[in-house]
């Protein structure tokens, strides 16, 4: 019980302290917003937005969570405040859960931005919200752990961002967001950004598909 109190304090402190840090602001918030705007403006019809939305959401989460970890872990390791956490009696697993928990939450919040923007442009009533929430959580968890792997491998925040881009950008290209390359998409089907974005896509079209099936039936 005492440790859970420490857990919440770490999560809340990270949220308060790091959510609006410059690297996080640029890569984690502004970047996904810019991408979302770019794709939505480019789209000609509401159907296009619905098709693009899962990919943009997945990307927002990926960039948000990996940037967040780069800040919370790398910043603290550099300033040696991470040592303070390691020297506290909080179990190591709970400590890492607290550090990643904030990033997962941040990723989920990031995923809401494209949905919010899309809600002004298209009818989003066909989305299966439960399935979408599950898929978003799945992407947030998997990309947070990718971010953690990167954050513990480097010592500077800029190194973490650069190293993250070695993973993030190839994933964006491989998943076929820009061009529908069937071979690449097939090979990247197991990547952090692709497989969950498929599930997001399914959940985004779930109700309309079910409705269409009912009508046909």
């Amino acid at each position: 019980m005492r440790h859970w109190e420490a857990f919440w304090c770490i999560v809340l402190k990270d949220m308060r302290t790091y959510y609006l840090k410059p690297p996080n602001l640029s890569w984690g918030i502004l970047f996904p917003v810019a991408w979302t705007g770019m794709f939505f403006i480019r789209s000609q019809t509401p159907v296009d937005i619905r098709m693009i939305l899962p990919g943009v959401m997945a990307m927002s989460i990926l960039f948000g969570t990996t940037s967040m970890l780069a800040v919370t872990v790398t910043f603290e390791r550099k300033g040696r405040s991470f040592e303070r956490l390691l020297l506290s009696p909080v179990p190591l697993r709970l400590l890492m859960l607290a550090k990643t928990g904030g990033a997962i939450f941040f990723g989920i919040v990031n995923a809401c931005i494209p949905v919010l923007i899309a809600s002004f442009l298209i009818d989003i009533s066909g989305i299966g919200w439960a399935a979408l929430a599950g898929s978003v959580a799945l992407i947030a968890v998997s990309s947070t752990f990718l971010g953690l792997f990167i954050a513990v491998s480097v010592s500077e925040v800029f190194e973490a961002q650069t190293f993250s881009n070695f993973f993030r950008f190839p994933m964006v290209f491989l998943c076929g967001l820009f061009s529908p390359w069937p071979h690449c998409r097939l090979r990247s089907s197991r990547s952090v950004i692709c497989f969950p974005s498929h599930t997001v896509r399914i959940s985004c079209t779930m109700r309309s598909t079910v409705r269409a099936a009912c009508r046909c039936g």
Binding site: R2, R80, R84, S88, P89
Partner: peptide, 24 residues
């Protein structure tokens, strides 16, 4: 430690309260 390693973004009081929370 030899270098002060508290959180620069938090106030003095917040730092102490956070450290106290770490010890439950």
């Amino acid at each position: 430690p030899d270098e002060s390693n508290l959180y620069p973004e938090l106030t003095g009081r917040e730092n102490l309260k956070f450290c106290a929370a770490l010890y439950g």
